[in-house]
Computed example of a mutant assay.
Amino acid sequence: MNLEITLEDERWDGLEPLATRAIAAVLDHCGLDLDHCEISVLGCDDARIAELNAEFREKPGPTNVLSWPAEDLAADRAGDKPLPPQPDFTGEIALGDIAISYDTCVREAAEAGKAMHDHVTHLIIHGTLHLLGYDHIRDLDATLMERVEVEILGKLGIDDPYNV
């Protein structure tokens, strides 16, 4: 897997192994060849992710994770699985970029009484699924995405984050 991790916030020590494990679990679950997939992850703070959220989503304020898919793989019909990504002429599959905010992750994990590494793993899985065309805007799509998240998290020994 070609995983590029950029840490703009030094508090993100340990993000690389968490992101690698989470992304590999998603790609494996989706039947993709890890050796041919490319993803970039930015570990940042609330100030930076708020800038990105305003610039790309026109939403003020910070959020936990953002994703920029390389291509739109979303299914046309609600609840259907997304289209599989296709390799380029070199055989590589560029999936896109993810940004994750340390401040929001710490706050959410504390508020939910969850271990930080479990919450970050969930958010990286969530962001990676967005790169693969999953979404949660329509109810049936949200149900599908959450089910896939829970399946992947279960394989990693992490409890269902939606069963609180």
Results as ranks from 00 to 15, higher is better:
residue 146 E to F: 01
residue 142 A to V: 00
residue 139 D to F: 10
residue 155 K to D: 13
residue 51 E to K: 09
residue 142 A to F: 02
residue 2 N to W: 05
residue 44 C to S: 14
residue 72 D to F: 15
residue 158 I to P: 11
residue 134 Y to D: 04
residue 161 P to Y: 05
residue 30 C to T: 00
residue 118 D to Q: 09
residue 152 I to V: 13
residue 25 A to M: 01
residue 50 A to R: 06
residue 121 T to Q: 08
residue 24 A to Q: 11
residue 61 G to K: 08
residue 81 K to G: 10
residue 84 P to I: 02
residue 125 I to D: 07
residue 48 R to W: 06
residue 2 N to H: 12
residue 85 P to S: 10
residue 55 E to Q: 15
residue 73 L to G: 09
residue 44 C to W: 09
residue 106 V to G: 04
residue 15 L to V: 04
residue 10 E to K: 14
residue 39 I to R: 03
residue 147 R to A: 15
residue 30 C to W: 00
residue 136 H to S: 14
residue 13 D to K: 15
residue 7 L to F: 06
residue 18 L to A: 08
residue 144 L to F: 11
residue 58 E to D: 10
residue 17 P to V: 09
residue 13 D to N: 14
residue 25 A to T: 01
residue 113 G to M: 06
residue 160 D to H: 01
residue 98 I to Q: 11
residue 61 G to R: 07
residue 62 P to S: 12
residue 82 P to Y: 13
residue 116 M to H: 12
residue 132 L to V: 04
residue 89 F to N: 12
residue 13 D to S: 15
residue 138 R to K: 15
residue 135 D to A: 14
residue 164 V to W: 13
residue 82 P to F: 11
residue 34 L to K: 02
residue 162 Y to I: 02
residue 138 R to E: 14
residue 77 R to E: 15
residue 97 D to W: 14
residue 20 T to P: 02
residue 148 V to R: 08
residue 27 L to E: 02
residue 65 V to P: 06
residue 18 L to V: 05
residue 37 C to A: 02
residue 26 V to Q: 05
residue 104 T to N: 07
residue 81 K to Q: 09
residue 151 E to R: 08
residue 119 H to L: 11
residue 124 I to R: 04
residue 96 G to R: 03
residue 24 A to H: 12
residue 143 T to I: 13
residue 133 G to R: 00
residue 146 E to H: 03
residue 159 D to V: 02
residue 95 L to T: 01
residue 31 G to Q: 03
residue 144 L to Y: 10
residue 60 P to M: 10
residue 37 C to I: 04
residue 78 A to W: 05
residue 38 E to L: 08
residue 153 L to R: 01
residue 40 S to W: 11
residue 131 L to V: 02
residue 37 C to W: 01
residue 87 P to M: 12
residue 159 D to A: 15
residue 47 A to T: 12
residue 83 L to M: 13
residue 28 D to V: 07
residue 147 R to Q: 14
residue 32 L to A: 00
residue 86 Q to N: 10
residue 110 A to Q: 07
residue 7 L to I: 07
residue 115 A to P: 00
residue 123 L to P: 04
residue 89 F to E: 15
residue 70 A to M: 11
residue 140 L to H: 10
residue 135 D to E: 15
residue 100 I to W: 12
residue 42 L to A: 06
residue 91 G to P: 05
residue 91 G to W: 08
residue 118 D to V: 01
residue 36 H to V: 04
residue 133 G to C: 03
residue 62 P to G: 06
residue 92 E to V: 10
residue 85 P to F: 08
residue 159 D to S: 13
